[in-house]
Simulated scan of single mutants.
Amino acid sequence: MRLRPCTVDALLALGQVALLALIGRGAYSLGYPPLDMRGYLLGLLVILPTLVRSRAPVAVCLVTYSTWVLYILAGYWPVVTCFGPMLCLYTVAVVRPTRTSGYLAVLLSAIWTLSGAGHDARFLAPVAAQSICLNALTWRMGYLARRSAELARRTREEHQEKARRAVAEERGRIARELHDVVAHHMAVISVQAGLAKFVFDSDAETARGALDTIAGTSTEALEEMRRMLRVLRSQEDDGVAPDAPMPGLARLEEMVDRVRAGGVPVEFRVVGTPRPVASGVELCAYRVVQEALTNVLKHARRASASVELRYHRDNIEVSVMDDGEGVIPDRVERGRGHGLIGMRERAKLYGGTISIGPRGTGGFAVRLTLPTSARAAPPGDDAIA
Results as ranks from 00 to 15, higher is better:
Val92Phe: 06
Leu44Asp: 05
Leu137Val: 15
Cys88Pro: 03
Ala21Pro: 01
Val271Tyr: 00
Gly363Lys: 05
Glu291Val: 11
Leu195Pro: 04
Leu178Gln: 07
Gly142Phe: 01
Arg171Tyr: 08
Leu104Val: 08
Arg165Phe: 11
His185Gly: 01
Tyr76Glu: 03
Ile23Gln: 12
Tyr32Leu: 10
Ala303Asp: 04
Leu48Thr: 15
Asp257Trp: 03
Gly362Leu: 09
Val63Gly: 06
Val191Ile: 10
Arg2Asp: 07
Ala210Ile: 05
Pro33Met: 07
Tyr28Met: 15
Glu169Tyr: 03
Ser279Trp: 03
Thr81Asp: 02
Asp257Glu: 11
Ser319Glu: 06
Ala105Asn: 04
Leu137Glu: 09
Leu35Glu: 03
Ala204Tyr: 09
Val94Asp: 00
Tyr28Trp: 09
Gly324Val: 04
Glu236Asp: 12
Ser355Met: 10
Ala18Cys: 14
Val281Ser: 05
Ser355Glu: 15
Val231His: 06
Leu19Asn: 10
Val288Lys: 03
Pro33Asp: 06
Val63Lys: 01
Ser54Thr: 08
Thr273Val: 14
Glu161Ser: 08
Gly43Asp: 00
Val182Leu: 14
Val167Gly: 10
Pro247Glu: 06
Lys197His: 15
Glu291Asp: 14
Val191Met: 12
Glu291Ile: 15
Leu11Gln: 09
Asp203His: 11
Val92Ile: 08
Tyr71Ala: 05
Glu308His: 02
Lys348Asp: 14
Gly84His: 00
Ser202Leu: 10
Thr81Phe: 00
Ala215Met: 15
Leu134Gly: 05
Ile189Leu: 13
Cys82Phe: 11
Trp68Phe: 11
Arg230Trp: 02
Leu151Phe: 07
Arg359Lys: 11
His312Cys: 08
Ser218Cys: 07
Arg146His: 06
Thr361His: 09
Thr273Gln: 12
Ile214Arg: 04
Trp77Leu: 02
Gly335Cys: 00
Asp203Glu: 11
Leu51His: 03
His312Gly: 08
Ala93Thr: 05
Arg25Asn: 13
Val17Tyr: 01
Glu177Asp: 14
Glu345Gly: 03
Ala168Ser: 13
Phe198Leu: 15
Val266Pro: 02
Val318Leu: 04
Met186Ile: 11
Ala18Phe: 10
Ala305Cys: 13
Arg269Ser: 14
Thr361Asn: 08
Val188Leu: 04
Cys88Met: 15
Ser29Arg: 14
Thr219Trp: 09
Phe268Arg: 00
Ile189Thr: 12
Ala278Trp: 00
Asp237Glu: 12
Ala27Val: 00
Asn135Asp: 05
Met141Arg: 15
Leu41Val: 14
Trp68His: 10
Ala207Pro: 01
Gln235Ile: 04
Arg302Glu: 12
Gly142Asp: 01
Arg147Ser: 08
Gly142Arg: 04
His159Glu: 05
Arg375Val: 13
His184Tyr: 10
Gly172Leu: 15
Leu89Pro: 03
Pro242Glu: 02
Leu51Gln: 07
